[in-house]
Nucleic acid binder design. Structure first.
Length: 636
RNA sequence: GGGCCCGUGGCCUAGCUGGAAAGGCGUCGGCCUCCUAAGCCGGAGAUCCCGGGUUCGAAUCCCGGCGGGCCCGCCA
């Protein structure tokens, strides 16, 4: 059997030693081995967990520490400290084991297959094709990409999908505007162009509609509310007019000659019905945006296996209609003023269903409209159809990387699958939720054209990386590639190292941090390691008898954790644990680098062993970074 | 109004299947004739939001507050 993790072998060794030392009735798999605090040892076993009584735990710790001291070749020393047994491991034997695993795995080190791997479809990013990707989508894309890579390292078969949301009113808004201005050329990426047009149409239509509403509104409170909204959109209009006067006036004029909203609704209806003129128009607009997305994503090193057009997978094939029909037939949907409503709330009253689907006990579920009275479907309806479609592609689990705002909708989708009789599927739709990226002071809004685009962020990141290169005497022209890797690495790490459940307030200096606990910090440690390996000359890495000492232990242990960290990151969908682990490894390596000579170590065996350690660190850092989607530079 | 998420040194964050409070930024002090100083070493700095409860033991679990974000649409 192939050994993927040296640490796992070590842990088993320690557990066995404990089981031999424990009274027979207490022995078993319950021993959990953890990391000891620095200065107390390498590994620790907490006996409180086993005995639940303070005096007893302390007493047993004393007893066991004495017994296991010489009970395994890997254990150098064991000491009892207040209910814990702190263990020091023997660096040479363990070092040899780690070396064997790391070098035999090489570029695949970290791969740690799950005992029962499955087929997973990850859907991420899925931005509406009506504006460029902004920093919020970037968080989504970076998380989704890393998630896919980590799950693959866990042995799962992963397919990454982008859901092109080409059906819906937002698309019709963009298409409506594009129809009027497509003859006007602008020297920007296509998605930026569409984004501007989309925002202008939104502003014009909203101002027009709100103005109409306020004239007929009798209730003063309600009227004040409308006035506030109107004022907001007037401000937005002013901003957009300043950005592109010509486009704004063309669209403004056009909307005076007709009712834009009626036309937008018509485009939406015709597209959903598959009428040729609408298909041609909408696909052209969406296609332009997608082209822009692909440019941005490819620069980020993020790619997709499939681009699922909502119209294809959920509408024109009749799947959404089928979902509605079956929900009605099953008695979970009713007609309300011409619209069809799914009774998700009633279904959610059943505590057993909640438990099965992992819906929090008190979560308030509301009914869900499936079909408008004009016969068109809604986003959530199509999402139900799409979820079914994903399972039909052979997935046994579906992970949706979607903003936390959509928690209710995701639960409604689950409930609909359940109601349709797809119980297993409902249980296996995972909402990988993440919080928004907020701009201090302003609310990001695609409809208002207010956002920091992903392209701007990447440009700025790369620019700052370039400035750093110049400071270090590296020619920026020759190091374009390094600047790209470092700048983008900084952005990715910033978004991966903190929990996705924490709102991220966007600050340039925080995201473009190049110091400790950053992407570049990890890249730098890697570059230093590579640099030593390059300069090694005749010295070959190896693990001669007795060449590893106390100084090496911390790094050896850290290197050997990678497969464990991968397992945790994949099984618990906690990418941040991998990011933080790499930071810890880089920190430890930098400290080691400063403390001991490597190439000049005496005797030669010591230098060989240290070089071997440097190589292991380089491999570990590189593989870890790749799993996060961070590219390792060759120098910096 | 109901619900979901978050609340840890001045700031940002890890720990949250209960058992030894962990990093970064900032701050104060030190380290480049030696493998890249995007670095390293050291100091100061914490009523783990508040109040109860469960437990031998709570940052972690339960209840009740408070503060912030989000959701409750024939939008997506």
């Amino acid at each position: 059997m192939k050994l993927y993790s040296a640490y796992q072998a070590l842990e088993r060794e320690v557990r066995d030693a404990f089981n031999r030392a424990l009274p027979g009735d207490l022995a078993g798999p319950g021993i959990s081995v953890e990391k000891a605090p620095p200065d107390r040892g390498d590994l620790a076993v907490n006996l409180y967990r086993l005995f639940r009584d303070e005096d007893m735990a302390v007493k047993m710790a004393n007893e066991i520490a004495g017994k296991i001291k010489n009970s395994s070749r890997y254990i150098m020393d064991a000491r009892s400290e207040g209910g814990y047994v702190n263990i020091r491991i023997e660096p040479n034997l363990y070092g040899k084991l780690v070396w064997d695993v790391v070098t035999s795995m090489g570029g695949t080190y970290g791969f740690n297959p799950h005992p029962s791997p499955i087929r997973i479809i990850i859907e991420h990013t899925s931005a509406n094709p009506v504006h460029p990707l902004h920093v919020g989508h970037l968080r989504n894309a970076i998380l989704g990409d890393a998630l896919a890579k980590v799950l693959r390292a866990r042995g799962h078969t992963v397919e990454v999908h982008f859901y092109v949301d080409d059906v819906g009113l937002q698309m019709a808004y963009a298409a409506y505007g594009y129809e009027k201005v497509k003859h006007v050329k602008r020297d920007v990426k296509p998605d930026h162009y569409i984004g501007l047009v989309y925002a202008i149409v939104n502003a014009i239509v909203n101002v027009r509609e709100l103005d109409g509403k306020r004239r007929t509104e009798e209730d003063p409170a309600r009227r004040a509310e409308i006035d506030r909204e109107l004022l907001d959109w007037l401000w937005v209009s002013k901003e957009l007019m300043e950005r592109d006067e010509e486009l704004f006036s063309i669209l403004s004029e056009a909307t005076k000659r007709e009712n834009p909203l009626a036309r937008i609704l018509e485009i939406n209806r015709a597209y959903e019905a598959g009428e040729e003129w609408a298909v041609k128009l909408v696909r052209e607009v969406a296609g332009l945006c997608i082209e822009g997305f692909k440019q941005t994503l490819s620069r980020m090193g993020i790619s997709f296996d499939k681009w699922d057009w909502e119209s294809d997978v959920a509408v024109w094939n009749g799947l959404s209609d089928e979902v509605i029909r079956q929900l009605k037939e099953a008695g979970y949907a009713h007609v309300d003023r011409g619209a069809i409503v799914f009774e998700a709330d009633k279904l959610a009253e059943d505590a057993e269903i909640r438990r099965k689907l992992g819906i929090p006990e008190n979560f308030t579920v509301t009914p869900l409209t499936l079909m408008r009275s004009d016969g068109t479907t809604l986003y959530a309806t199509r999402d139900i159809a799409y979820s079914l479609w994903k399972f039909k592609q052979g997935a046994s689990r579906v992970v949706n990387v979607i903003a936390a705002q959509q928690s209710l909708e995701q639960i409604q989708v689950k409930l609909a699958l359940y109601a349709l009789g797809y119980v297993k599927e409902a249980e296996n739709v995972i909402h990988f939720s993440y919080e928004l990226v907020t701009l201090p002071g302003v609310k990001m809004s695609g409809r208002r054209g207010r956002y920091v685009s992903a392209d701007e962020l990447i440009d700025e990141a790369v620019k700052r990386a370039c400035e750093e290169l110049v400071k270090r005497g590296l020619e920026p022209e020759e190091n374009r590639d390094v600047a790209e890797r470092v700048g983008i690495g900084a952005v990715k790490y910033a978004m991966l190292s903190i929990s996705p459940l924490r709102p991220l307030s966007f600050k340039w200096e925080k995201i473009l941090d190049f110091e400790r606990n950053s992407g570049p910090f990890i890249q730098y440690a890697y570059v230093r390691a590579r640099s030593i390996l390059r300069k090694a000359g005749d010295l070959k890495p190896g693990v001669p008898e007795g060449a590893f000492g106390e100084e090496e232990k911390k790094l050896l242990l850290l290197v050997s954790y990678l497969p464990e960290v991968v397992a945790k990151a994949a099984d618990e969908l906690k990418i941040e644990s991998l990011a933080q682990y790499l930071n810890e490894l880089a920190l430890a390596f930098n400290s080691y680098y400063d403390k001991v000579p490597i190439l000049k170590a005496e005797p030669r065996e010591k230098a060989q062993a240290r070089l071997a350690l440097v190589k292991m660190v380089a491999i570990t850092l590189e593989n870890g970074m790749r799993m996060l989607g961070i590219d390792p530079p060759h120098r910096m």
